[in-house]
Design a protein around this nucleic acid. Structure first.
Length: 107
DNA sequence: AACTTGACAGCAG
DNA sequence: GCTGCTGCCAAGT
C-alpha cells in the first residue's frame, strides 16, 4: 500500500524518524502506529534496507521491550549502542536503561 | 501473480 | 527471566 503522503512505505517513516529528539528512542510499534499501520515488521524491513543511515537517526529505533534489536550499519548492534550512548541513551546488556523515560511519543 | 524474507510484537510454556 | 511459535504487512525476487 502507499502511505499517507503517497511515498513508498519505506520512505515515509524516515520523516517521522527525524522528529525523534536526540537522547530519545522510539519503537517499531510506535512508529507503525504513528504511520497508521500495523505493519511493524514491514517497518523493520524498510528501516533495515534504508540507504540513508547517516541522514536519518535509524539507530534511535529499538524494540518494544526496550531491547536494541539489530543494526545493519558499522559495528552492527555494537555500533548502534555506541551511537545511542553518545547521545545520552545508555544501554546495558542489550537493553535501554530507563526505557519508558527515553521513549519518545509521536504527537 | 506467487513465494520468500525480515532492524518486530505478543503470548504461551 | 528466557526460549520458542504465531500473526502481521510491505518489498524484493
Amino acid at each position: 500500500m502507499r502511505s499517507l503522503t503517497g511515498l513508498p512505505f519505506q520512505r515515509t517513516h524516515w520523516e517521522a524518524l527525524k522528529r525523534i529528539p536526540k537522547g530519545k528512542v522510539t519503537t517499531y510499534g510506535d512508529l507503525a502506529a504513528y504511520l497508521g499501520t500495523k505493519a511493524v515488521r514491514a517497518v523493520g524491513t524498510a528501516v533495515g534496507r534504508n540507504p540513508h543511515a547517516l541522514e536519518v537517526p535509524f539507530h534511535r529505533v529499538v524494540r518494544s521491550d526496550g531491547r536494541v534489536g539489530s543494526y545493519s550499519g558499522e559495528g552492527g548492534v555494537r555500533g548502534k549502542i555506541a551511537l545511542l550512548a553518545s547521545e545520552g541513551v545508555q544501554v546495558r546488556r542489550g537493553r535501554v536503561v530507563d526505557f519508558p523515560e527515553k521513549r519518545h511519543r509521536f504527537v
